[in-house]
Structures are given as structure tokens and as C-alpha cells.
Design a protein around this nucleic acid. Structure first.
Length: 1189
RNA sequence: UGAGAUAUAGCUCAAUGGUAAGAGCACGUGCCUUAUACGCACAAGGUUACAGGUUCAAGUCCUGUUGUCUCAACCA
């Protein structure tokens, strides 16, 4: 006879290990996919993580979310393939290699460096580095129960993958969506390279620096002067700059369209000349003190500190547009139009003057506005960060000098200082120069002398620095390849409307807004380890080729060889059309190999553009590249079998990352969304809401967590605790140990110096422990209860022979109704990608309903008597609840769900297979998701039971107040009834209530029998429509006349309230009448319910109570002695005058409750073979219990 | 600076615009009723961040402020 396994204790980590072993031995994951062969696919794309970093707890969170829906959809019968992937390119990998090898970018390919490394070796190192933690990732994946196929992952550095990426690029190129242009990018002259925003966002890159800033005067040209004001004085625009070194490259000024500007007559503060200046009205008093409003112009003498001023005109920014001004520092004339006022939407009046100096080469906004207005630019700084030779006047500026002081070495500074001192002193500009003057300072001096300076000051602001050289970054125009995104915004935006975003606001807000303002995508990266841009150009730029496949490249090389541009074909071993791995391993498309390929077109030699492409393009290409589209699996994409994805999920930080690049590539290459549903999950923060970081010591090691609590509790905690898109404050306390074995608990952030002495050795999570107790512990116990009695009875589920639900008793039908309501709810929540709601619903069902109501109230059915239909029904009901719960929870807690299912069904597996019934599957993950049966759901029944639960709770509450133990039987509950329907409902569950609260009868009373004090509550929902603005009046009337209203409603079904001359008729639905008290009784209220308890104790009741105490003591002793629940016993109790009658009067009750075959009241028991029991405070006696035969 | 999110009990979270704001944990009290003390029950706990507004009615809608988180940027 097979039995249900019984356990001593719940051990979740062990369950995880056992089930993992089972899955591995039985290839359960593979079966869950193969068993759905031919079914509708549900397409999931795995966002590739980078294996050069250790997996963190946030990965567990993100992957749990992915896993949940993939498992759920599999259960629903879809085929869900999950191909793993690795993101292998990009800066973090390069940085990792450089750290490992102890080198910097300068050493790469630089033979003069002592640490020289060839690009080839460097890239080899990257290839190795990128898979550094692959085994850790595989461990965490297995341990957390994330099902993803890691046997054949897509790898972004793979030649096949790159080939698909090239194909996509060529596709864009052919559609004319790829172009070469230049943009302003952060650039480190010291390192000679552009910087990505990721690099700029390295900690410590933004630093507060003090800069020389200046408010500069731009003189309105004679031609424009007439247009704005007739004045004999010169007119100047005032513009503020924090980077005076960009002033020689100024080609325009920008104003805000709707900003108000004023014309102010005044004097130049440095040379005292009368002048008119233009600036934003709002900022007037920043430069002209209100105190000086009344100063007389006549009294002013050059050099006076207080300068008189007068506003002589107003206008809006738009009125200033087009006005031309004189070049401020005419070292070089720009090509094209320049030196006019433009309107820029970025102009504000938060600081400066409301007029912005525009140097298109050195600011992104500047560049944009200049381009829009077709204004030319000047780039008077070279890539080394030095002025061009032209920027010199022989006095203040000398040409070819660093524009930032920080770029000079101390030595250079000293030399420059000597030079400056000589020149400036010789020209009489400065008497005794003490220190090196920066370019900024000297430009300001020059402007001051030329009467073009209005104000100078030092200003502290944060400015980005190169993370490698520590030197300030410049914004500099760099050549790049762009994807034309801006022109296709509308299509991108409209396609986005087809995507179901979770949460919606990320889609419409963060993502939608981003699309609406999307700029062209800069693909170029000047790095070493990445996908090379497949574009070859002639030196003059006249000819270019964009390669879209290896075969094409091979042919072009052949051509180049034929034309003498190349000698050998590095792709000679490649056989076109052979898709084998071996064939694709015969070459490498990375640098430096790609750079040694030269092509030919129209007689010109073509050289590859040395840039790599943005790694985001790699990952955005994965829908196609993972299947080597279009070279293989063409139909999967073209016929939309494996595209677009039904579901993707990543962190919300991917909104402008992977989500965006997938969307752009899908839209531009295939005019389709790339995914239909997307969950953008929030971050995992530490328990105080701080970002986790290793540096601060508040990071959570997923391996500790998984080892300690197992995957199920961890996953459940993370899912149930917060919506996926809300940040999760992860409850976790690290435990540190120093070298002497001393342990401390990390509750707050640990300072680095302490952290360095300690090692994290363990930790604990209050949150996970709660889940473990509350959900898994409860479920474990419930299963244990089932197994215990089923084994005693030798009961096994027989799917072919089940008591029809209709024939089961109220309690069974109730829990089944609850169960099927739960199925409905959980299905909906999973369908809606709201796993936290599913989890919470399951928790409530298990704890509140199944364990603490159904099992508690059904207990005796499981052990009383022989196998009856009712008993069988109880087993079947509980079995169904447990198996269904196991399935509902299995997407979230796959190990425990599996464990529970197997315990419940392994004993009957063979039969189920023979009978082809639902429990035939060896794993829960191969089963079919249950469907809620409408016929089983009985809302009325659920309401009835809720009444029973509420009433019980209310009675218990009265008992507690009155200090009456539940074990003490009481005579009567009274429930005042105003509504017969409620009475009917309560009648149906009467016996459950009585048993639960240990009372003998319920009496329903109405006013004919007893006085009931009533209260009323207005139903504002129905009254709102009726009363509108009169609501308040009705309300106050009702407060004062509640008795009359109650009477009116009860007698006539309506009551007329006079308000403000009108009349409002209250009807039954508008008023809720609630009984609140029965005078003379102990009463409890809960919403519309009121119950009263008769607390008088008769002698009979008291005796019965004592009998129950005795039963309880006997049960305890049975348990202490380790008797089986089926053992019959002989009980001897030492006589006690206060107890004997109670025992005699309740003898049969005591005996049947305790399986006592014989109960004897004896004169005396020897203390040596009897136990002392205290029945209540006053009664103590001795008792002995023996097993009968 | 911009965009998005968020702010409810000590903590973690609920609450179709309807008037007594709910759970769980922690705390307190009482209970070992043949599943479960890793349990059960009962209590206590709130100016719904702040300030305005819309509405008969606001935790909920609108505006502003403040705090926190994320992303993007840092430009005069």
C-alpha cells in the first residue's frame, strides 16, 4: 500500500535541492517545452546579462518575474522557448580587462608603452573576461529555479550573431536610415577619446570646480541697431558664460521666445562709457541694484561703484530674433551665416542674463540650435584641447595653448607663467604677475580692456571629469554614424501604443515622452571590443560600402585582391552557405582583423571606419541575431513565429536601453513592435531604501539568501511584497565576521574602513522568514495533516471515484468555491502580469481560509469514525485544495509547488497514467493549468461563511472581554435580525459557528421579542444622485432625526426629508438600518452585524467546561506519551469532590473524545505512575493513562 | 535641470470619488481545544508628507511645495 510521505520538519533549502535534482535527472525543463510541441508558441526574449559581473539579488528578482510568466504560460499549454543569451561587448568588459591586466587604454596597441598589449591580445582577453562568472551565473540560475536554456545561448561576440547585426545595419543603410554626421560629445583631450555617458556617470566624475565666469557684452551691429532703438550709445547684449575659452568660437546668441527683455541705459562698469544693454527683465536686479534706481546720470563719474541705470525699452525674445551683432573676438571668420540672435527653447532665466552665448562646437544645445537656424560654427580648439594657432593677439593669447589649466603639467605651467609674465608686464597690462593665468582669465582681461566685459566672478559648479585622466572633459564635435530616429518618431510612437506596458505609465510616460523627443541614435563608439561598423569608405568619402554578410565581405575582399588593394583573404576558409559552427569559427570579425581588410570601389581603396557600434545595438538585435536571421531561420521572423515577443521583462533602467533599442530596430527594420507585453521591474534596494552597492556593504549576496532560505521563500517574498515595477526594499541584514571570528550584524551602512576588516559570512531576512512561516510553514502543516490521517485511514485519492461536489457538505463546498474563486483570480492576475496580486491571493487562501477555517473546523471529520462518504469527501476536498494551490503557486515557487504536488500525487501516479487522468504528469510543471469552474463557485455560500467567520470572531471578542475561555461552553447567542435574508444565511452556517465558539444555541430575535437599539447609515452612493448639493442638509437632518427616519423606512419603505423648500424622498436603498445593541446583553458590532452573548454560567455549563478541561489534559498526556491517534486508553483519575460530578455527568463525552475505553474514578493514585493535572485554579488532581491492550 | 515613479499604522503593503481608511509583521494581552507555539485568538496603533483647489462628497482628481528612488542631462 502506498502512502503519502510524512516529514519531521519543513526544510525549504533541502526541498529546492531535491527538486532541482529531480528536474535535472528527468530533464523536466526540456520536457515542459517539448511536450508543448505544435502548440501555440508564446514568445519570450531573454535580455542578455553580462557575465563579467557577479549576479546580484536584483537579478534573482528580475529573473523570477520572467520565470513566473514563462512557467504560467507553459502550464496554460503554450510552448515557451527560453533561449539564454550573453551580452559580451562594451565598456564594462573593457574596464574589467584593464583592471585584471593592470593596463590602461593608452597601452593598447601602443608599442612605446612599457605595458604594451596588441589589440589582438587585448580582445582575446576581453573574450575571456566576458565569461568570467559564467559558472556563477549558471549556479544562480539553477539554484533560483530560473528555467532558461543555457545549453545553446546566443552570444553577442559570436560571428553568426555579428553577421545578423551587420545585416540589420545594412538594412538600415539601404533604407537610407544610416548617415554620417557629427555631434557634440563629451571628449577627454587628455585621453584623446570620446566618453560615453556611462563613463561620465562613474562615481566621482562630476566634481565641483571653481571657474572664472564672465558676463560679456556683444555689440549690436550698426545695421540692426536702427531696427531696435535709436540711440547714440552703443547697444550690447549681455551674455553669461562659465567657459570663456569658448568665446572665440562664438557664432550666435540665444534668447527665450517668451522671455521679456529690457533695454537699459547705463555705463560700462569698467571703463565708464555710457551704453545700452539688453538682458532678461527678470534678471535685471541681479546686475542693477534696485537701490540705484534713483541715481542721477549726471552725477556719475567713471570708477563709481554705484552705477545709475534707466530702463528705456521692453520686448519679447521673439522680437530680438535675427538681430545681428559684431563678432566678439574676431580671430577667425566662420563660414556661412553667423552672429545673430536665435530663439532657443532651452533658454531660462534661472541664472545668467537670459541670453545665452552659443558656441556650436562646444555644447550640445548650442549645436542643435545653430543647426536648426543654419548658423555656422567655429572650432578654434583642437583635439588636444589647445587653441588653434590663429587664436592669438600676442598680448593675452598666444595660440596653441591648453584651454583648461588642468591640462598643463606643473612644468608646462611654470614655462607658460614665465612667458606670460614677460609679455604682460612688458605691455603694461599687469605690473607684477604672481601666478599662471588661465586662458579663461586672460580672455576676460582682454575683454575688459576692450570694453566688452560687464561683470566677472568665480563660480562654483559641478563639471564632468574624465574618469581615467581626472582632467575636465570638453564637449567637442566628433564624427559619428547615426540612425535616423528623429524622422521616424511618429511611427515609433504609434507602434508603442500597441505595446502593453506594465506599468502603463512607463510606456506612456518615460518611454512615450522619450520617443516623442527621440534624437538620432549615435552608433559610433571609439573602442576596441565590440561589433565593428561594417562600413568601408574611400579617403575622400566619395565611395563607401556597407557590408551585410560574411559572404558579401568575402566577395568584396576577393574583388579588392583582384584590384591589388589586398593580398590575402582572411575569410578564405569560409564556405558560403555552410552554417556550421566550424565554418563560422574560421575567422574573426572583431578588431583588429576587421581593420586589416581593405575594399575597392571605382578604383578607390576603401578603409573601414574605425569605430565600433554601440553595444545597445547588439542587444537590440537579439530577436533576429539569436536565430542568425536571415541566414538561418528566416521563416521564424518573416512569418512572425518567433517575432515579435509576447513577453519581455527587465529593469526599468532598460527603458531607454534595451526596451528602446529593441523597439527602434523592430520598427525601422521590420515596421513592427518587437514585443507585445513588457514588464519593467523596479530596483531592489536595501531595507532602508538605499541603493545596494558593494562599496557600502549593503549589497545582498543571492547565494547566501538562496542557501539559507531556498529559492521559493526568496522568490515569494520578492514577488508578494511589492508590485514588480515598484522598488523593493529587500529585508536583509548582513552578518560580518572579522579575522578573530567576532561577528557583527550590519543594520546600517557600514563604513568602508570597518568593512575592510570584516567579511560577510551570513545574513538573515525578517521578510523571507515571515513568508517561510506564514505561507510555506502553514501549507506544509496542512499537507502534514492530510498525510497523517490519510495514511491512518489508508486513503488514496482515486480520480475516477470522487464524491460529487453537490453531495459534499457546506464546508467542503465552501472551500471549493473559495478555491475556484482563487483559480479565477490568480489566472487573471497572471494574465495581467500582476504576480504580486496572485501571490497575495494565494497567501490569503492558504492561511485564512484553508488552514485556519476549513481544516480547523473539519479536523474531527478526518479522525472520527470509519471511512464514510463524508470523510472521503473531506479528504478529496483537502486534496484538491492542496494540489490546486501547488499548481497556482508553482510559477512563483516552482520547487515547493513541485514538492507538494509530488507528495500528493506520486502514490497514485501509476493509476493516473493508466486512467489518463489529470494527475498523470510526473511534474507539476508538465500539468495543465486548472480552469475555474463556474458551477463550483457559490457567491452566496462564500458570503454565508464570511458571516460565520465574522460572527465567530465577534463572539470570541466578547469572550475575551468577559474573560471566558473558549473551552467553557456557554448557552446562547442572540442575533438581532432586521433582514430575513441574513437570518437564512446564518442559519445555514449555525452549527459551524456554535462549534467554533463553543456555544449551544443561536437565537434570532426581532423587536417583537426584545428591545433592539438601532442606528442608521446613509448610503451616499445612491443619495449622491438624488440630493446633489443638498447632501449636507440631508445629512444633518438625518443625524438629528434618525429615529424618525428608521421608523418611516421600516413602516412605509420611505421617508421624506424637507430641505430648502424641496423634498427628498429617502427609500430603502438609501438608508442602511443597523442593530447596534440589545440592552442587558454583552454585545459586539462589526459593520451591519451585531451579536449578543449570554454569559451566565449554569452549573451544568460549568461542569461541561470542567469536562472539556479534563479532555484537554488527557489529550496532552496522550501526546506526551507518544500514543498513536488511534490508540485506545484506560484512564484513572483520583477522586476530587469538585470534579467528580462533572466527570460523571459528561462521561461519554470525555471517553469518546479521548478514545477512552475505560475511565475510572479511583480513591488514590500514586504520584509515581500518575501525572498531576490542574483542571482550573482550584482543582488539582492526579491522573494516569495507559494504553488498552 | 528635465522626465517618470513614490509618500497611508513603528515596518511591508491594501483601499471602482461615497463619509467610521484595512491586512500582515513587530509590540501588548490571553491561549499548547489529537495539523501547526515556526501556531491561534483578541486588543492597541492614523492630522493618509505639506499647502491650496475642484466636488454635495477627496487617501483617491487638479495645482504647488517638500522628501525619497530611477532615468536622462548638466547647457549659458
Amino acid at each position: 500500500m502506498k502512502k503519502y510521505p510524512e516529514y519531521k520538519q519543513l526544510n525549504l533549502p533541502q526541498i529546492s535541492k531535491d527538486m532541482l535534482k529531480f528536474w535535472e535527472e528527468n530533464s523536466t525543463f526540456a520536457k515542459s517545452v517539448s511536450s508543448r510541441e505544435g502548440k501555440t508558441p508564446w514568445v519570450f526574449y531573454e535580455g542578455p546579462p553580462s557575465a563579467n559581473g557577479m549576479p546580484g539579488i536584483h537579478h534573482v528578482m528580475a529573473r523570477a518575474i520572467k520565470d513566473i510568466f514563462c512557467r504560467f504560460k507553459t502550464l496554460q499549454g503554450y510552448q515557451v522557448k527560453r533561449k539564454a543569451g550573453w551580452d559580451t561587448h562594451g565598456l564594462p568588459i573593457e574596464l574589467g580587462v584593464e583592471k585584471t591586466l593592470g593596463i590602461t587604454k593608452e597601452d593598447i596597441g601602443n608599442k612605446n608603452s612599457p605595458k604594451y598589449i596588441s589589440v589582438e591580445d587585448y580582445n582575446k582577453a576581453c573574450r575571456k573576461e566576458v565569461m568570467k562568472y559564467t559558472d556563477k551565473w549558471e549556479d544562480v540560475t539553477a539554484q533560483m529555479g530560473y528555467w532558461v536554456d543555457m545549453s545553446d545561448p546566443y552570444i553577442t561576440y559570436d560571428n553568426k550573431y555579428i553577421e545578423s547585426v551587420w545585416w540589420l545595419l545594412q538594412n538600415l543603410y539601404k533604407k537610407n536610415l544610416l548617415y554620417k554626421g557629427y555631434t557634440i560629445q563629451p571628449f577627454s583631450p587628455a585621453a584623446g577619446t570620446g566618453l560615453s555617458s556611462a563613463e561620465l556617470n562613474q562615481p566621482g566624475c562630476y566634481r565641483d570646480v571653481k571657474d572664472r565666469t564672465a558676463v560679456v557684452q556683444f555689440k549690436v551691429s550698426e545695421a540692426s541697431k536702427v531696427r531696435i532703438q535709436s540711440s547714440k550709445d552703443d547697444i550690447y547684449f549681455l551674455a553669461w558664460t562659465t567657459t570663456p575659452w569658448t568665446l572665440p568660437s562664438n557664432t550666435a546668441l540665444a534668447v527665450g521666445k517668451d522671455i521679456e527683455y529690457v533695454f537699459v541705459n547705463s555705463f560700462n562698469p569698467f571703463n565708464g562709457k555710457p551704453q545700452t544693454v539688453i538682458l532678461a527683465k527678470e534678471l535685471l536686479n541681479k546686475y542693477f541694484s534696485e537701490k540705484h534706481t534713483d541715481l542721477k546720470f549726471e552725477d556719475y563719474k567713471p570708477g563709481d561703484k554705484n552705477i545709475p541705470f534707466k530702463i528705456v525699452g521692453h520686448c519679447k525674445g521673439s522680437d530680438l530674433a535675427g538681430i545681428s551683432y559684431e563678432q566678439l573676438l574676431p580671430f577667425v571668420k566662420p563660414e556661412g551665416e553667423a552672429f545673430k540672435v536665435l530663439v532657443g527653447d532651452f533658454v531660462t532665466t534661472t541664472d545668467g542674463t537670459g541670453i545665452v552665448h552659443i558656441a556650436p562646437s562646444f555644447g550640445a544645445d548650442d549645436f542643435k540650435v545653430a543647426k536648426q537656424n543654419e548658423v555656422g560654427s567655429l572650432t578654434l580648439v583642437d583635439r588636444r584641447g589647445k587653441f588653434l594657432p590663429e587664436v592669438q593677439d600676442g598680448v593675452f593669447l598666444y595660440g596653441e595653448e591648453y584651454v583648461k589649466e588642468a591640462y598643463l603639467s606643473e612644468e608646462e605651467k611654470a614655462t607658460e607663467y614665465a612667458k606670460q609674465k614677460k609679455i604682460l608686464e612688458a605691455n603694461g597690462k599687469i605690473k607684477d604677475l604672481k601666478v599662471y593665468l588661465s586662458v579663461d582669465e586672460r580672455i576676460v582681461l582682454k575683454l575688459q580692456e576692450e570694453g566688452k566685459l560687464f561683470k566677472k566672478e568665480t563660480y562654483e559648479h559641478s563639471y564632468p571629469h574624465c574618469w581615467r585622466t581626472d582632467k575636465p572633459v570638453l564637449y567637442y564635435p566628433l564624427d559619428s554614424w547615426f540612425v535616423k530616429v528623429a524622422d521616424n518618431r511618429e511611427r515609433l510612437f504609434n507602434l508603442n501604443k500597441e505595446i502593453n506596458w506594465k506599468p502603463e505609465s512607463t510606456g506612456t510616460g518615460r518611454f512615450g515622452n522619450w520617443l516623442e523627443n527621440a534624437l538620432d541614435w549615435n552608433l559610433s563608439r571609439s573602442r576596441f571590443w565590440g561589433v565593428p561598423l561594417p562600413i568601408w569608405r574611400s579617403e575622400d568619402g566619395a565611395e563607401q560600402i556597407c557590408i551585410g554578410s560574411v559572404e558579401e565581405l568575402q566577395k568584396e575582399i576577393e574583388n579588392a585582391i583582384a584590384k591589388g588593394m589586398m593580398k590575402e583573404n582572411p575569410l578564405s576558409k569560409f564556405k558560403a552557405g555552410d552554417m556550421s559552427k566550424e565554418n563560422y569559427d574560421t575567422f574573426d570579425l572583431h578588431k583588429p582583423y576587421a581593420d586589416s581588410i581593405f575594399l575597392e570601389k571605382n578604383g578607390k581603396k576603401l578603409v573601414r571606419d574605425s569605430d565600433l557600434i554601440d553595444v545597445w545595438f547588439d542587444s537590440g538585435s537579439m530577436p533576429y541575431a539569436q536565430v542568425h536571421y536571415p541566414f538561418e531561420n528566416k521563416e521564424l521572423i518573416d512569418n512572425k513565429k518567433y517575432f515579435p515577443a509576447d513577453f519581455i521583462a527587465e529593469g526599468v533602467d532598460q527603458t531607454r536601453g534595451w526596451f528602446y533599442t529593441l523597439h527602434v530596430i523592430g520598427a525601422l527594420c521590420f515596421d513592427s513592435v518587437a514585443y507585445k507585453n513588457v514588464v519593467s521591474n523596479g530596483l531592489v534596494l536595501d531595507k532602508n531604501g538605499n541603493k545596494m552597492s558593494k562599496r557600502l556593504g549593503n549589497a545582498v549576496d543571492p547565494f547566501f539568501t538562496l542557501n539559507k532560505y531556498g529559492a521559493d521563500a526568496t522568490r515569494w517574498y520578492m514577488i508578494a511584497n511589492a508590485a514588480p515595477w515598484d522598488n523593493l526594499k529587500f529585508s536583509w541584514t548582513n552578518i560580518y565576521e572579522d579575522e578573530n571570528g567576532k561577528r557583527i550584524e550590519g543594520t546600517e551602512k557600514i563604513p568602508a574602513e570597518i568593512l575592510s576588516k570584516y567579511k560577510i559570512v551570513d545574513g538573515h531576512s525578517d521578510g523571507i522568514e515571515e513568508v517561510q512561516r506564514k505561507l510555506f510553514g502553514t501549507l506544509y502543516n496542512t499537507y502534514g495533516f492530510y498525510a497523517l490521517y490519510a495514511n491512518v485511514d489508508g486513503f488514496l485519492i482515486d480520480e475516477k471515484n470522487i464524491v460529487p461536489v453537490k453531495e459534499r457538505q457546506e464546508l467542503d463546498r465552501w472551500i471549493l468555491s473559495k478555491l475556484h474563486s482563487l483559480i479565477k483570480e490568480v489566472t487573471e492576475q497572471y494574465e495581467n502580469f500582476e504576480p504580486h496580486r496572485a501571490a497575495r491571493a494565494i497567501e490569503e487562501f492558504v492561511d485564512e481560509h484553508l488552514s485556519n477555517w476549513y481544516v480547523r473546523l473539519s479536523r474531527r471529520r478526518f479522525w472520527k469514525g470509519d471511512m464514510s462518504t463524508d470523510k472521503k469527501a473531506a479528504y478529496e476536498t483537502l486534496h484538491e485544495c492542496l494540489t490546486v494551490v501547488a499548481q497556482l503557486m508553482s510559477p512563483i515557487s516552482p520547487f515547493f509547488g513541485e514538492w507538494l504536488y509530488q507528495n500528493l500525487t506520486n502514490p497514485i501516479r501509476e493509476n493516473a497514467i493508466k486512467n489518463n487522468t489529470p494527475l498523470q504528469y510526473e511534474s507539476i510543471h508538465l500539468t495543465n493549468f486548472v480552469k475555474a469552474e463556474a458551477a463550483v463557485i457559490d457567491v452566496n455560500l462564500e458570503q454565508r461563511m464570511e458571516l460565520a467567520q465574522k460572527i465567530s470572531s465577534m463572539i470570541l471578542s466578547i469572550r475575551r472581554k468577559e474573560n471566558l475561555k473558549v473551552r467553557q461552553p456557554l448557552q446562547k447567542i442572540q442575533i438581532p435580525i432586521l433582514d430575513k435574508e441574513i437570518q437564512t444565511k446564518i442559519e445555514a452556517v449555525k452549527n459551524l459557528i456554535l462549534a467554533e465558539v463553543n456555544v449551544k444555541e443561536i437565537e434570532f430575535v426581532d423587536e417583537s421579542q426584545t428591545q433592539i437599539i438601532k442606528n442608521m447609515k446613509l448610503n451616499f452612493k445612491t443619495l449622491g444622485k438624488k440630493c446633489g448639493a443638498n447632501m449636507k442638509a440631508v445629512q444633518s437632518f438625518a443625524n438629528e432625526n434618525s429615529a424618525a427616519i428608521i421608523k418611516g423606512i421600516e413602516s412605509y419603505g420611505q421617508f421624506t426629508v424637507p430641505v430648502n423648500g424641496a423634498e427628498i424622498v429617502l427609500e430603502t436603498e438609501d438608508v442602511e438600518i443597523i442593530p447596534v445593541d440589545i440592552p442587558g446583553w454583552k454585545v459586539a458590532n462589526n459593520g451591519p452585524l451585531t451579536v449578543a452573548l449570554d454569559v451566565t454560567l449554569t452549573e451544568a455549563l460549568r461542569q461541561e467546561g470542567l469536562a472539556r478541561e479534563v479532555v484537554n489534559r488527557i489529550q496532552n498526556i496522550r501526546k506526551d506519551k507518544g500514543f498513536e491517534v488511534t490508540d485506545k486508553i484506560l484512564v484513572k483519575i483520583q477522586q476530587n469532590a469538585n470534579l467528580d460530578t462533572a466527570i460523571k455527568n459528561n462521561l461519554s463525552y470525555i471517553c469518546s473524545e479521548t478514545l477512552t475505553g475505560d475511565l475510572q474514578l479511583v480513591q488514590e493514585l500514586s504520584a509515581s505512575n500518575a501525572s498531576t493535572i490542574e483542571v482550573d485554579e482550584l482543582i488539582t488532581t492526579l491522573i494516569s493513562i495507559e494504553k488498552l491492550n
